[in-house]
């Protein structure tokens, strides 16, 4: 199977593994972990380096399935073997999932909805992750993820109304956000190389704050370049400049 391994850069090994397994959509037991760079603590945040790990999908025996594993992106899974265990009745997750189901039903969209807790963010918050899966759901993403962000906003408001504090809700359709994040990280590295090669400032396309954040984080520890957002919403964009 292609794309069976993945390199992840994160502040800690645990986080890198968690992020990687989420991206691959597998559990921790299903991957081999190789630490490529243990990172460095640095002093007061200077000279610190993130860790780099490589995850390799273990060969799994898939009973009753002799055909080669299909490309996970292009094939809708009719009956996935690794169905996430139904949430053990957590009221917040239940609310997020049932509201999303009702909403999609009223939008006449046929899809499967699951809710889970995402990994802890740097600020200690644990976002709720709502995954929508099904066929032909590009209408739920829309141009520049406009529809996906509207869905996420409304679902976030409804969930936050029931919790006493603001709960961050991440809504994803067919793994779009994870895929987009991977693309953005690649783009960031490519543009950084280009800045280094040409010595010229690189200006990226306008992006949402969440997407700009991915670029900033990816290049945060670069010895060569630094990033800055310029312009006004909704045309704010990241620029990459050489460090002096």
């Amino acid at each position: 199977m292609e794309r069976a391994n993945l390199e992840i850069i994160a502040p800690t090994v645990d986080e890198a593994i968690a992020r990687g397994t989420t991206q691959l959509g597998v559990s921790r037991e299903m991957v081999d972990v190789e630490i490529l760079d243990e990172g460095a603590k640095g002093f007061l945040g200077f000279g610190s380096r993130q860790v780099r790990v490589k995850l390799t999908l273990k060969a799994v025996d898939t009973p009753a399935k002799t055909a080669p594993a299909p490309d996970p992106v292009s094939t809708p899974a009719p009956a996935p073997v690794q169905e996430p265990a139904p949430s053990a009745s957590d009221p917040i997750l239940d609310l997020a999932a049932s509201f999303t189901r009702d909403l999609l039903e009223k939008m006449k969209v046929n899809a499967k909805v699951t809710a889970s807790y995402a990994e802890k963010e740097e600020d200690g918050e644990i976002p709720v992750q709502v995954d929508i899966r099904g066929e032909d759901l590009s209408i739920l993403i829309g141009r520049r993820a406009e529809t996906l962000n509207a869905l996420q906003y409304i679902i976030g408001l409804v969930v936050s109304k029931e919790t006493t504090h603001w709960t961050q809700v991440i809504v994803d359709v067919e793994g779009y956000r994870a895929r987009r994040e991977r693309q953005l990280r690649q783009l960031a590295r490519r543009m950084a190389e280009q800045a280094l090669r040409t010595g010229k400032r690189q200006v990226l396309e306008p992006m949402s704050s969440a997407e700009r954040r991915i670029i900033h984080l990816e290049l945060r520890n670069s010895p060569d370049v630094e990033t800055q957002s310029i312009g006004e919403e909704p045309n704010r964009k990241v620029t990459i400049i050489l460090k002096k």
Partner: peptide
């Protein structure tokens, strides 16, 4: 108008169909 706009976007999905 952020909430109203988000509702409009979702309505548009249903309407376009």
């Amino acid at each position: 108008g952020r909430v109203a706009n988000a509702i409009r976007i979702l309505l548009r999905v249903a309407a376009e169909r």
